[in-house]
């Protein structure tokens, strides 16, 4: 009597809900990448929210106290990218230390609205490339 109706309605609701959840999930996925991964395929990472992890390059940090604009280079063993961030860096922010920034790629650089310092020391040695895999794991 009513059973098949309820069952059909239930399936329909589940299907719609499932579709909406699927869309929401894939639309909200924030990839975590290193600068060299971006460089290999920039188009894949434009127009979406990205988390970029790397080491703050030596001698690359500038901070304007009035406009609160922070800029620095984020790098892994192969590539460095310029990052701009609005706001004062957290207390533990240092050059040659791990950092993760979240935001969007814009005009060849990265515009960050969320900056997280990561306690990691995967430094850039002379001549020897950093193990990027270790870097990924340490920063995620």
């Amino acid at each position: 009597m009513k059973r098949p109706l309820y069952a059909a309605a239930g399936v329909a609701v589940l299907a719609v809900a499932g579709w909406m959840i699927y869309q929401a999930l894939y639309g909200s996925l924030v990839f975590f990448i290193l600068p060299s991964e971006y460089a290999q395929n920039p188009a894949q990472f434009e127009d979406r929210r990205i988390r970029l992890g790397g080491i703050v390059a030596n001698d690359s940090v500038t901070f304007d106290n009035d406009s609160l604009k922070l800029t620095f280079l984020i790098s892994d063993s192969l590539k460095s990218l310029p990052v701009t961030h609005h706001g004062a860096p957290p207390e533990l922010f240092r050059e040659m230390m791990g950092v993760v920034v979240e935001g969007h790629f814009k005009e060849g650089g990265f515009a960050s609205d969320n900056l997280l310092v990561r306690h990691t020391e995967v430094y850039q040695p002379d001549g020897k490339p950093i193990d990027n895999e270790a870097l990924r794991r340490a920063l995620y």
Binding site: M20, I21, A24, L25, G27, S28, L29, V30, F31, F32, R49, R51, R136, Y140
Partner: peptide, 24 residues
């Protein structure tokens, strides 16, 4: 749990941010 599932299935590291949760 989705980031864990994605990592287990494809190795890709991802996060799911607040917008997803707000939306659903």
């Amino acid at each position: 749990l989705f980031p864990l599932i994605v990592e287990a299935v494809s190795g890709q590291l991802v996060t799911i941010g607040a917008p997803f949760f707000d939306r659903v």
